[in-house]
Write a protein that binds this DNA or RNA. Sequence first.
DNA 1: TAAATTAGCTTACATATGTACGCTCAATTA
DNA 2: TAATTGAGCGTACATATGTAAGCTAATTTA
Lengths: 209, 209
Amino acid sequence: MGVRAQQKEKTRRALVDAAFNQLSAERSFSSLSLREVAREAGIAPTSFYRHFKDMNELGLTMVDEGGLTLRQMMRKGRQRAEAGGSVIRISVDTFMEVLESNPNVFRILLHERSGTSAAFRAAVEREIEHFISELTHYTEAHANRHPTLARAQAEALVTLVFNAGASALDLKRSERKQLADQLVLHLRIVATGAEALQHKMDLKAERHV
Amino acid sequence: MGVRAQQKEKTRRALVDAAFNQLSAERSFSSLSLREVAREAGIAPTSFYRHFKDMNELGLTMVDEGGLTLRQMMRKGRQRAEAGGSVIRISVDTFMEVLESNPNVFRILLHERSGTSAAFRAAVEREIEHFISELTHYTEAHANRHPTLARAQAEALVTLVFNAGASALDLKRSERKQLADQLVLHLRIVATGAEALQHKMDLKAERHV
DNA sequence: TAAATTAGCTTACATATGTACGCTCAATTA
DNA sequence: TAATTGAGCGTACATATGTAAGCTAATTTA
């Protein structure tokens, strides 16, 4: 890559980073301004257009990047669980750690999920679908679940986790621990319920043999 | 109430209604402007201040009103369920109907829940807490659940329902029906799981007698 | 080396916003 | 009836925004 392309890439990163950096509990993506982002990235407002068509394009980039980051971290967490211990507990703990170290990554997903741009909502749904899909496969493999049930279980689990994440953003560390315990219980309820329904299905199937 | 106070009340309503009316999939509360709301309500921008300190105060009013509306409608639905039939099914159907007839009421709750104002987030949490609380009591009474478990079950149920509501806003009626079925399955998983865990607890308790 | 490309800059403009200030006049109170 | 109150109005201003137009200078290409 030539000197010029490198510099461009660097500026582009500066823009993305500036935008992520300006997110907070009090500031959502849609409230960021092109001028302010450009200012923090150290370029003139109009130079922004050399990198993105408009703020939306920047935002969608952030959602994609954010989703990817999150999934990578969760995958690492699942690897940790392979070593033994409760998958639920370890996953929840991983999730909370990720949340703590990347709150803004989570924020944009969370907020834009119920945001005002259909494109954003779709992008976030896509990321969540990835989570659900990965978890469905995992469950089918490890718990020998019927596909429909595995899918429903994964949907419920991901929903509950994301939701807890949303609440966690507002909490201090101590309260967050409590929330994590609560979440673990919710997840166990779901896992237990899916297990029980699976048994019922199996019994019915036997009777028909 | 005097003529004057009546007129004032009427204008206030016009403001609230205008604001609700301007909400849409593409327009969140925080993107509404004082001027535009006043315009639709038929008063001068500056007259707005005769009724609300600022837009935030209007918004919080809307959240309170919205939460109340929603709860009233859900209670009616539960009454319908008393006549017989699956509580889950009937509640989900009620919820979907409410959603269809009052999408904007739901929108503000949904959006501001992950919004940028702590006051709004707290207000929405308060409304959701009402839902959870009502449902916890219902479950304790009708299913003889241990309090902790009843609470956790209610939390999970409400989370799943709200979440499905969020997705439903974007869908056409036919797809919505499908989503409702999905949601019913999720709720059954939770109910079954809570039931199973309750049994386990009961057995353990017996052993200790 | 000469020509072409392009990231970034400066200047400029139109637009929308929140809200301060002070007036009017109909309803209320005394 | 005379005095007070207050909902609503018009005017005005400071500010922030997105972005169009055209220039500069360094890198890349031929």
